[in-house]
Amino acid sequence: MSSRLYPLAAGNFAIGTGMFVTAGLLTPISADLGISTSAAGQLMTVFALAYALLSPLLAALTARLSRRRLLLLALAVFVAGNVLTALAPTYPLVMATRVVAAAGAAMFTPTASGVANALTSPERRGRALALVMGGLSVSSAVGVPLGTWLGSVSGWRATMWLVVGLGVIGFAGVAALVPDVRVAVSGRLGERFAPLADRRVLVVLVTQLLMFGAGFTAYTYIGSLFDLPLPAVLWAWGLGGIVGNQLGGRLTDAYGPRRMVLIGLAASTVFMALIPVANLALPIALVWAFLWGALGWLVAPAQQFRTVAAVPDNVPIGLGLLSSAQYVGLFAAGIAGGVALDAYGRTGVVVLATGLGVAALLFTLATYPRAAAISSNESVPVR
């Protein structure tokens, strides 16, 4: 795989750590800022909402920039947002700084996928997208457990400084290795939403929204669902995510996205329902978390592949909409999961996450028939 793709993965590693680590810091954040656990969980929620809303707007405003310059601008904004988070003294100010960080993430991640798509031949596209998006899964295996441990020892603000350092490393990598790729991108805001008129795109986005809504209803409040050492559980989940993401890219190239989406959705839904069993003992939790992460992350490269196939002439916009749908799902998960936790405790969160997983699976089965996959040549093996 081209070395030019690794800085893109490093940028996503920083972004994933900065967003996902909040789930492991709910207790120290709530204690430091004098707020409830569910209120602390809304830091991820506001990040997700800002990302979803700002992604198409910022894409239109930055359409004239070269992709390399946009990647550098995005990481600079992300780093600045996390510096402000580390320094903010009150909950409202911390919330505001998460919007700044989300703006950087909203510019970087879709652009990184678009650049990876432009730099890669079609027969290796699934693996290239898996590598770049693998930064997010690696962040959950390495960055999030490390940040959670650091937050428990030195305070959650120390974790934010760790994220700042990771963002600077990503910036340096992009500056040194990523070429100045030119990708045709429309600057008209209305055209950012034009693919929504295509049913093939719309169903992919709804699957993405439901899938992330389900998974992150459980993940956002995972610290409240387990009595076991949280860094170890998060580490196992993230390690599984690395394996699943990389296997997902290869298996998508070989067997098409439909099979990977359905397998991943069905398996991750079952594992969310098994959270009470996983909480019985640490060895059980570690195996459970690894398998949940691995099977859940099978879906990510397949969803990107579906999007590229649906809008081959408009890939950057399509991938941007996919990211927005993902973060709308995260936003819904944060709100709904917080309500469920306050009203019904752990059971409410588990039932809600599992129910959303079932809804995602049923919706995808109804809207993604085998005939559609074959007609678009998505399921033809490429070896």
Rank of each mutant, 00 (worst) to 15 (best):
R125M: 14
G11L: 04
S139V: 12
A63N: 06
Q303P: 01
L93W: 08
S3Q: 15
M19L: 15
T367P: 03
A332I: 08
A343M: 03
P301H: 06
Y6W: 15
R4N: 12
M211Y: 15
T85Y: 12
T364M: 11
S113Y: 10
Y219H: 08
L146P: 01
A130D: 13
S38A: 15
A176I: 05
P179D: 12
A102W: 03
S30W: 09
A176K: 05
G170P: 08
L362M: 12
T90V: 10
A88Q: 10
L202M: 11
R306T: 06
A353I: 09
G167D: 08
A373D: 05
S66G: 15
A294K: 00
P301E: 10
L5R: 07
L265N: 09
I275S: 04
A372P: 01
R68A: 10
I29W: 05
L234M: 13
G249S: 05
P56Y: 05
G167V: 02
F290T: 00
L298Q: 09
A310P: 00
V201I: 11
D32K: 09
A23P: 07
V358Q: 02
G213L: 09
G170M: 15
I29D: 06
M133D: 10
W161N: 09
V299A: 03
G143V: 04
L93D: 04
S55V: 13
S379D: 15
G151K: 06
R192G: 01
F171T: 08
L209C: 11
V94F: 04
L93P: 00
N117S: 15
A59E: 05
A31P: 02
F47W: 10
L54A: 12
